[in-house]
């Protein structure tokens, strides 16, 4: 239907229908106001001083840890389906092969004709963007941030590099590297359910899982410095009104790193499939 067909009585009917739907949606939203049971997330708010300052991270990776694991597979479905549809042509629509394929111009840019600003500042900006993504993922448990955000930032750096430099992109992520990134990330996430399982018999019980629990505990088996810096990863001293508390977020930051690699792989695969195509591009976009 085109917007131009909505003239006269049809337009009026369409507008009235929209108003009715709007009233329904708005009233159903309004009924939610103030009717939300504070339930499980308030429990996590109470636990915050012992786990991680960023409550959302502990909620997503502990209470919904297993759920988030499956859900990160969804983004892979998107990447794989895009690659299948765009690249190998497994869909096999009738007549696609008979017609003339639209061949995109090879993405390349001569750096001699590039503006000075792009020539000298694009690569530093790409590198600093990647660093910013890594800062976000390492600060996941203390501030608003996490694996998915890091993945999106790094993928946008990749897209910037590809758009500016074309096939000679200095940030040269190949197909196999991207698949390896994603597989490594998802595998890391899955395997990090193990410490929680060994300590509490629940898979993906992530809050407070002690990575050193398998070491026989006698004085001096694990040096205290090592345990503080690496043993309880990302231990923090929270300066609150009631005093100083020592919180450890368990393995949540490590899981965030796994998720970051997963998302980098998946979103860069989507970009790769849309920009270069899959079957047409030679192995390694930088050659």
């Amino acid at each position: 239907m085109d917007i131009k067909e909505l003239k006269g009585i049809r337009g009026i009917i369409a507008a009235i229908a929209l108003v009715i739907i709007f009233a329904g949606v708005l009233s159903s939203f309004m009924q939610l106001e103030g009717n939300v049971t504070r339930g499980i997330s308030e429990e996590y708010n109470k636990l915050a001083y012992r786990v991680a300052p960023n409550n959302l991270a502990s909620w997503v990776y502990d209470y919904r840890g297993f759920d988030t694991l499956i859900e990160t597979g969804v983004i892979y479905v998107g990447a794989v389906v895009s690659v299948l549809v765009l690249g190998r042509g497994l869909v096999g629509l009738k007549g696609v092969d008979d017609e003339e394929r639209v061949v995109a111009e090879p993405m390349d840019l001569k750096t001699e004709t590039m503006p000075v600003l792009l020539k000298y500042f694009a690569l530093p900006v790409v590198i600093l963007l990647v660093s910013y993504g890594l800062l976000v993922v390492t600060g996941a448990s203390t501030s608003g941030g996490g694996g998915f955000q890091c993945g999106v930032i790094v993928a946008s750096a990749y897209l910037l590099s590809v758009v500016i430099y074309g096939k000679r992109s200095p940030f040269n992520l190949k197909k196999k590297t991207l698949i390896a990134f994603g597989a490594f990330g998802w595998g890391l996430y899955t395997m990090l359910g193990l410490p929680g399982y060994l300590t509490t018999n629940y898979w993906q019980y992530n809050v407070g899982a002690d990575l050193w629990s398998w070491v026989p505990s006698f004085p001096g088996s694990v040096p205290e410095v090592l345990r503080t810096v690496f043993g309880e990863p990302f231990k923090l001293a929270l300066e609150l009104k009631e005093g100083v508390f020592y919180a450890t977020s368990g393995i949540i930051p490590l899981i965030n790193i796994g998720e970051a690699f997963n998302v980098i792989g998946a979103i860069c695969l989507i970009f790769f499939a849309f920009i270069y195509g899959w079957s047409d591009s030679e192995e390694g976009s930088g050659k």
């Binding site: 504070r38 499980i40 708010n45 915050a48 960023n54 409550n55 609150l240 009104k241 009631e242």
Partner: peptide, 22 residues
């Protein structure tokens, strides 16, 4: 407030004041 424990936050008020993370 945002559901992030910031330095100097009060432990008793935080569960009631913090926005729900659901």
């Amino acid at each position: 407030i945002v559901p992030i424990l910031e330095p100097g936050a009060s432990l008793s008020d935080f569960p009631n004041e913090a926005a729900l993370i659901f």
